[in-house]
């Protein structure tokens, strides 16, 4: 039961929301976070939306790692880390060349 699963919000109701877990699986869950809108990617835990997943913030986690790792890495590893970040940027559709 203590398991988080990402889902898309399909419909907002009074204190609940309908979410889509993918593969046609939808469920009514408790709305336990402010500012959730239809279409948001959210984390559902034990039948409640506990927060909105910010896909953009994935990049800031990677940047945080890059900042830490590049100071330790040799030139080849720096290139690998940069490639890794670029792949995410392309996936997220931000800042790619």
């Amino acid at each position: 039961m203590c398991w988080g699963v990402p889902a898309r919000v399909v419909e907002i109701r009074e204190y609940t929301a309908i979410v889509d877990f993918g593969g046609g699986s939808t469920r009514e869950v408790v709305l336990a976070a402010n500012g959730i809108k239809e279409g948001d990617l959210v984390m559902v835990h034990a039948g409640a939306i506990i927060g909105r997943i910010s896909e953009e913030e994935i990049l800031s986690s990677l940047e945080l790692y890059k900042e830490m790792a590049t100071s330790l890495a040799d030139s080849e590893e720096r290139r690998e880390i940069e490639e890794y970040i670029q792949r995410y940027k392309q996936l997220l559709g931000v800042g790619h060349k």
Partner: peptide, 25 residues
């Protein structure tokens, strides 16, 4: 576990990135 969005899938299956982070560790 339900299928995750593509952005999260990459955090699961990017072997090259895992290898790079392993070197740092």
């Amino acid at each position: 576990m339900a299928e995750s969005p593509e952005s999260l899938q990459v955090l699961r299956y990017d072997a090259a990135a895992a290898s790079s982070i392993k070197k740092t560790i």
